[in-house]
Design a protein around this nucleic acid. Structure first.
Lengths: 146, 146
DNA sequence: TGGGATACCATGGGACCATATGGGCGTCAA
DNA sequence: TTGACGCCCATATGGTCCCATGGTATCCCA
């Protein structure tokens, strides 16, 4: 499969590392993504992780705006100022830095959440609560309506 | 028959596997579904299982929304974050992971429920109770109400 | 029509392998 | 010099593949 799908929770070890789920790693390999672009998600308290194509897309979005527009400035502040590059170690783990911890509330465990063309890092309880709320929303209002 | 119909309850073995009913397997074969897309149902505490066409349908729905909209984000959280791909083993069994157990309450037995173009995994007691309640609902209010 | 053979299916378990996780050690930079 | 990070190896758990068993329905032939 070539999309990031499903969710899984892994433990952070004593060195502050966490294994990226095998399924996600093989998607990364398939897309030939070696350097990870990570940024603080716009919508949720989660870190979004993807390839350079993600950053490219955002930059094209900015380029389509007026350079001096507030919107373009806000976007750049988020995707550049709120983004970092990361690499996996030889075992497919990534370091959970304060950049990640502070924004997500992650402490001992990380929930990896597939989002098709990227995946996200969540604090387990936060993901649980947010997904449940989203489901409740859909259950009452349905997929199609507002 | 080319639709998923009826229900059946099978036992989970010591390794956490359960046989998919033969009738369902032949529908899968008939529809040439080899990789199963499973997601946490929006309506019931059940896992819905179908082919990639299911996921495609959902993704088209998302694509019709603004990429940055809260609604598109919530949908993706459910469809991508709440979905997995699974494969049957050579005997037509699937592994009942925590992803499935936690959401459905399944412990020792699984009830397979046909839903025409997909089927569902339920905890037997939950299915029993929900189906009974639905039947009661129809008897008193009919099909047409809410 | 009855009884045995047969095919299919749910279930069980052994062996093997991938993966998540833990920890040691060297290197480089603050 | 110490701490962060890279690379190496060890290990247990859990998942996958393969083969075995028992039960049941079906079929076929006497």
């Amino acid at each position: 499969m070539n999309r990031f799908l499903s969710n899984a929770t892994n433990r952070i070890d004593a060195k502050g590392r966490v294994s990226v789920p095998s399924a996600f790693r093989s998607v990364l390999a398939q897309r030939d993504i070696r350097e990870l672009y990570c940024f603080q998600d716009f919508m949720f308290p989660a870190i979004s992780v993807g390839g350079l194509d993600l950053l490219d897309r955002f930059e094209r979005q900015i380029a389509s705006e007026d350079v001096f527009s507030p919107k373009a400035n806000r976007m750049s502040l988020l995707i550049h100022g709120g983004g970092v590059f990361m690499k996996l170690d030889s075992e497919g783990r990534l370091a959970v830095t304060d950049f990640i911890r502070d924004f997500t509330g992650i402490t001992t465990d990380v929930t990896f959440v597939g989002r098709a063309d990227h995946f996200q890092l969540w604090a387990p309880q936060t993901f649980e609560a947010t997904q449940t709320a989203a489901r409740e929303e859909f259950r009452t209002r349905g997929l199609g309506s507002g």
